[in-house]
Computed example of a mutant assay.
Amino acid sequence: MDFGRISRRHLLQGSAALALGSTLGTRGAAAAETTVGFIYVGSRDDYGYNQAHAQGAAAVKKLPGIKVVEEEKVPETDAVEKTIESMVNLDGATLLFPTSFGYYNPHVVKMAGKFPKLHFEHCGGLWSDKDPKNAGSYFGYIDEAQYISGIVAGYSTKSGKLGFVAAKPIPQVLRNINAFTLGARLANPKATTQVIFTGDWSMPVKEAEATNSLIDQGVDVLTCHVDGPKTMVENAARRGAMVCGYHVNQSPLAPKAYLTGAEWNWEALYPKFVKMIVAGEPIPNFYRGGLKEEIVKVSPYGEMVSAEARKHADDVKAKFMSGEYTIFKGPIADNKGKTVIAGGTDRGQQDPELEKMDYLVEGVIGATA
Rank of each mutant, 00 (worst) to 15 (best):
K272I: 00
M304C: 01
T94L: 00
E209R: 06
Q172F: 03
P229M: 06
P132A: 10
A191R: 04
F164Q: 06
D2G: 02
P352R: 12
A307L: 06
M276V: 00
A145S: 15
G28Q: 10
V221Q: 10
K82V: 01
K297T: 14
G21K: 09
K130Q: 15
L222F: 10
A31K: 15
T326M: 03
A191G: 07
F101D: 07
M357P: 01
R185P: 02
Y258W: 12
R347A: 11
G344E: 11
T231H: 01
Y270W: 10
V248Q: 06
L162Q: 13
G150W: 03
G140R: 06
V316P: 03
N265T: 03
L259Q: 06
N285P: 01
T34I: 13
S7F: 02
L259V: 07
T193W: 03
P189K: 12
G199Y: 05
K336Y: 08
L18P: 00
F180I: 12
T23V: 14
L18H: 14
I332H: 08
T77E: 14
G124K: 07
K82L: 14
V205H: 00
T345K: 15
A191H: 04
T339G: 02
L63I: 06
V274T: 14
Q194D: 05
M304F: 00
G289A: 11
F197N: 09
K110S: 13
A59V: 05
G124D: 12
P64M: 06
G21P: 04
E355I: 05
R27T: 12
G113W: 00
S100E: 10
F120E: 05
N188G: 07
M357A: 07
V340E: 14
D129M: 02
K114M: 07
D358F: 02
E209L: 14
E72A: 14
G323S: 07
L20R: 13
Y47V: 13
C244I: 10
P75I: 09
A93N: 04
P169K: 11
F97V: 11
V109M: 05
G25T: 11
P331R: 14
K61D: 09
N178Y: 02
K317M: 09
L63W: 04
M242L: 14
A179H: 08
A29T: 12
T211C: 07
G240T: 13
F101H: 08
T198R: 08
R175M: 12
L291K: 10
V60C: 09
R44N: 10
G154R: 06
A342W: 00
K230L: 05
I66K: 11
G113I: 07
V278C: 02
H119W: 00
V221P: 05
Q146M: 13
A16S: 05
D351V: 06
G330Q: 09
Q51I: 02
G37S: 10
N212K: 15
A29K: 12
E76R: 09
L182F: 03
E362K: 15
V173I: 15
C123A: 11
K356N: 10
P352G: 08
Y287L: 14
A112Y: 04
I295L: 15
